[in-house]
Design a binder for these strands. Structure first.
Lengths: 163, 163
DNA sequence: TTAACTGCAAAATGTTTGCTTCCGA
DNA sequence: TCGGAAGCAAACATTTTGCAGTTAA
């Protein structure tokens, strides 16, 4: 069994092995970086983080690895409007992204049945939905205190909501 | 007064003049190409079309022009997943895009109140919606004959529906 | 052993820019 | 006239690739 920073195999490493991918030192490092990433890093950033753990990794390898992982359904490529592609691990549950146009910060959220709605729209147009992309670009509202007004049940912020 | 292919000023040219942009020969050609484009061309394609009308245009000029037009709210940049940015003229009414993953063909459609829904979602998250992006990637269904089943009123294909 | 992987540097791609010349208002 | 615009090529930024050496299975 291969280990993460705490001596445990990372989830991504496990997935790689399941798929029969050769686990090199570099891949292990990248897998660990990805497993520990709770944001949406681009290749540059992944390379930076990986390099801290192991200086013998090249950007080319990071590029090749993210592509490989994407092709194997382990990673998903995102485009939040910047010039570079960003990545997040698959299977954290369906969610969308809201990008704070001021800070660049990304907020994940879920919205019940949105995918179903889109599937219906697609069907009406005579198509079968393969995938979709929904991104909201928004500006933080002046912090209204903890007094909820119309809480519409469907929308839900993902993850630890207040740090 | 400047003329389009039929001797009339194009809509885009008019908008440029309104905004006080200097109308050079190249811009006139690009404006005409854009006015006549009913698809979502990328810079390469715009350059190709413009070059047919006037061989003395450089790609750099096309790049500078689309940027200028975008900054002036005349054009909108789109990203349909390919490697290059694509453009369409502003103000044809709000609509979304469905990209046929097989052919690359883009189908425009409207969906009543979708923007309003997204605005509500955004507000629930404590943000103010600035802009959003929604793209459907889909595969054409085997052509079911002209017998509509559940026609959900909201979705509507834009433009000439069957060529 | 050997097919797959890596590093490196070069190349490919899409886009922007510096500079000189040109031209529209 | 003269400031913005065009052409050209060089610069950029991101990503891919060819090749020769390395390594996991």
């Amino acid at each position: 069994m291969v280990m993460d920073s705490n001596g445990l195999q990372t989830r991504i490493e496990r997935m790689c092995i399941e798929r029969g991918l050769k686990m090199t030192g570099q891949r292990r490092v990248i897998a660990r970086v990805l497993s520990e990433a709770h944001d949406h890093p681009d290749v540059e950033e992944l390379y930076r983080r990986a390099s801290l753990l192991d200086g013998r990794i090249s950007v080319a390898t990071v590029y090749r690895t993210v592509r490989l992982l994407e092709e194997n359904g382990i990673l998903e490529r995102r485009d939040f409007g910047g010039s570079r592609a960003r990545y997040e691990t698959t299977g954290e549950g369906d969610h969308y992204h809201l990008i704070d146009v001021e800070s660049g910060q990304v907020v994940e959220f879920t919205h019940a049945d949105h995918a179903e709605l889109l599937r219906r729209i697609t069907a009406e147009l005579g198509f079968d939905l393969v995938s979709h992309r929904l991104e909201l670009f928004a500006r933080r509202l002046p912090d209204v205190p903890e007094e909820q007004t119309t809480q519409v049940a469907q929308t839900q912020r993902k993850g630890r909501s207040r740090p």
